[in-house]
Amino acid sequence: MTETEQFCQILRERSAENVSAGRLLFQNRLYGQLISVLRQELDSLVRAVFLLSKDLSTRQHFITQTLQNTKWTLPNSRTVVTDRNMVDLTDRLHGWTNSVYKLGCAFIHLSPMADYRNSNPFQQLDQTEIIDIKQHLHNYHGFHLNDDLNMDTVSPYLLRVLDKVSSNLECYIEYLENNQVSSIQTL
């Protein structure tokens, strides 16, 4: 098995587990944990997109670093590739990545968002972010723009968002397996 095949296998296995976990969490109304799993799935997606933006040699460099369990650094450099770098690139392609990333981070890190059963976590966001999230949910999943943004109105869409991220990730995994390179450049 090549390193690229091994890397893609890791992405697929992680994704399958995330989707399975997401369904169980949804059934048990554990929405904060589901959002955390969604954030983990997004981590895989932004890494795949980032790799697709690189030539095959540079891509191999990052895949090798993953398999060696080391942080991604630019070739011949100590410059660390950050989540922010990868999220910004993917957001330019999709337009929704940053919103999902920020929401996921709010649930991963201890914050008032974790108290979503007792208060509206979306009140922690500024108005621009609320509008962005509503618009993305509307555009991709049919969310009603007149609805308030709260866990009761958002929770029915969480599995749809996870499925969307997962299906996009699967396409990118196939592109990686086929050694495709995108015209998008970063770093």
Rank of each mutant, 00 (worst) to 15 (best):
residue 69 N to I: 06
residue 149 L to W: 13
residue 120 N to D: 11
residue 10 I to W: 07
residue 69 N to F: 05
residue 81 V to M: 09
residue 155 S to N: 06
residue 31 Y to H: 07
residue 99 S to G: 08
residue 100 V to R: 03
residue 56 L to T: 14
residue 35 I to Q: 02
residue 11 L to Y: 02
residue 84 R to P: 01
residue 103 L to C: 05
residue 66 T to L: 14
residue 121 P to T: 09
residue 132 D to C: 07
residue 65 Q to I: 02
residue 179 N to P: 01
residue 86 M to Y: 06
residue 149 L to V: 13
residue 123 Q to C: 03
residue 142 G to F: 13
residue 63 I to H: 01
residue 96 W to R: 03
residue 19 V to C: 02
residue 154 V to N: 08
residue 90 T to F: 04
residue 164 K to Q: 14
residue 179 N to C: 07
residue 177 E to H: 00
residue 81 V to S: 03
residue 37 V to A: 05
residue 77 S to M: 05
residue 119 S to F: 04
residue 174 E to N: 10
residue 180 Q to W: 07
residue 30 L to Y: 07
residue 6 Q to I: 15
residue 146 N to D: 15
residue 163 D to G: 10
residue 115 D to W: 01
residue 104 G to T: 12
residue 41 E to M: 07
residue 96 W to L: 04
residue 16 A to S: 12
residue 138 H to D: 13
residue 12 R to L: 14
residue 107 F to I: 03
residue 91 D to I: 00
residue 51 L to F: 14
residue 25 L to T: 00
residue 182 S to W: 13
residue 118 N to W: 01
residue 99 S to A: 14
residue 15 S to H: 02
residue 84 R to K: 11
residue 169 L to G: 06
residue 6 Q to W: 11
residue 125 L to Q: 04
residue 33 Q to M: 08
residue 108 I to Y: 04
residue 169 L to C: 06
residue 87 V to P: 08
residue 86 M to Q: 14
residue 60 Q to T: 13
residue 101 Y to F: 14
residue 95 G to T: 09
residue 156 P to L: 12
residue 139 N to S: 15
residue 178 N to P: 04
residue 173 I to C: 08
residue 185 Q to E: 12
residue 91 D to N: 13
residue 145 L to P: 05
residue 52 L to P: 08
residue 63 I to Q: 02
residue 132 D to S: 12
residue 40 Q to D: 05
residue 51 L to I: 07
residue 3 E to R: 12
residue 51 L to G: 03
residue 28 N to H: 06
residue 178 N to T: 14
residue 15 S to I: 03
residue 69 N to W: 00
residue 48 A to M: 06
residue 29 R to K: 14
residue 21 A to P: 00
residue 144 H to G: 11
residue 37 V to F: 07
residue 71 K to T: 07
residue 11 L to W: 01
residue 170 E to K: 12
residue 101 Y to N: 12
residue 22 G to R: 08
residue 84 R to I: 11
residue 96 W to D: 12
residue 114 A to Q: 12
residue 13 E to N: 05
residue 143 F to V: 14
residue 17 E to M: 06
residue 41 E to N: 11
residue 83 D to H: 04
residue 71 K to W: 03
residue 168 N to H: 06
residue 134 K to G: 08
residue 156 P to A: 09
residue 168 N to Y: 11
residue 48 A to K: 09
residue 140 Y to V: 01
